[in-house]
Amino acid sequence: MIAIIDYNAGNTRSVLFAMNRLNVDAVLTSDHSKIQSADKVIFPGVGEASTTMAFLQNQGLDQLITSLRQPVLGICLGLQLMCKHSEENDTKCLGIFDVEVKRFSGEGDLKVPQMGWNQIMHLSSPLFAKNHDGDYAYFVHSYYAELADEYTIAQTTHGETFSSALHRDNFFATQFHPEKSGNVGENILKSFLEL
């Protein structure tokens, strides 16, 4: 069973649909025991960092997530909240990755949010076993995780070059939305399910 953490954050249902397309048994849940006993956990999210962190803390989900031992996949805001700190309303995050989350400068012709398909490069993780450097993934975000040798498993450039995926121990996270990234994303989700 795959547990998709259901909390006050954006389009969680599309992750459930993606699991259904892969014929995987998945449930949207905020129930602590269901999350703890799941084979794998997906931590999705779209929204604003500080209110979402406050919500997680309020539900006790912050401690639950950091204590998980099975493979965990954070998506989009999920990735950012798994970092140490976000510039978005100066938010202290979960600290799974010792990485700072910053806002795109928006200098020159760069549009913020980055919205659309961009390439994932320097792929270095079993999460990308079925992917290739240069694959396009779908991004929607105004903040990004800095590069960090220890954790970065994919890089993308939008003005800045940033961590488009991070990994530490059982924790994985993508800034892009694999559930919306066509076949490329489907391959990443398959690889995650096979971890």
């Binding site: 397309r21 919306k180 066509g182 994303g185």
Partner: peptide, 8 residues
């Protein structure tokens, strides 16, 4: 649409 299509 959301159930069947894997792009935004």
């Amino acid at each position: 649409v959301a159930a069947n299509i894997n792009i935004p």
